[in-house]
Amino acid sequence: MTSTTDPVRTLEAALDGTLDERGRRWLEQAIGRVAERGQAVLEVFPAAGRSCGRGPLPGMPGWTVDQAARARLLLALPQEGAPLGELLFDVYRYGDAAERIAVLKALAVLDGADPAEGGADLAEGGRAPGGRLGGHGLPIVRDALRTNDTRLIEAAVGPYAAGHLADDEFRQAVLKCVFVGVPLSAVAGLDRRADRELARMLADYARERTVAGRDVPQDVWPVVERHPEVMQDRGRQDVHRPERIG
């Protein structure tokens, strides 16, 4: 499966329809500076929200204007591969929460995924042409998954993580989402990557919650039920999905 459109064109089309004259001029100049000297991204990146706006971006569900503008700036970077990953980590490391979320969301785009399609191709295991990041953005994903900020965690479990995280890391990421209340619908590629071991971990989690007399988040069940055998194992027979009401 490959991407059919160009992420730069998709972002530009969406931004064009939204930015006012001032925002357009700012972004154009900022792109020019970044394309000429990659390090300039460190200077322009923080101002994207103030200059372009922070509202939802029409045509790209789940994206805000500042996130798209920041992704566009990162796409202008001349670097590739490991040097690109290192520079992105620097932008992320010194970023505020909004900047960090933008870097996390841009990883899939830098890997060639089309943001308009939610990076579905990457999440489903495809490799888009034109991707120039490879696995070099993984340190950023891992850092975000260690935080306790649900906004960062949700941005981290996008198509890039689905495409690149190792199995054990992916399972821990899903578990973390369940623990902090990030809905599993936010986890890209979950259908493809939900394996028996993840089902076992979630079944154990459900049991722990049940024994403690607490609610079990509803979204763990579809994953568990894909591997019904994990419920038959010793110690888990007393855990059942509650009957749906209505």
Partner: peptide
């Protein structure tokens, strides 16, 4: 934001 069940802050696992 909605509080995480039984905890006063989303502090994670």
């Amino acid at each position: 934001a909605e509080f995480y069940a039984g905890n006063t802050i989303k502090r994670g696992g």
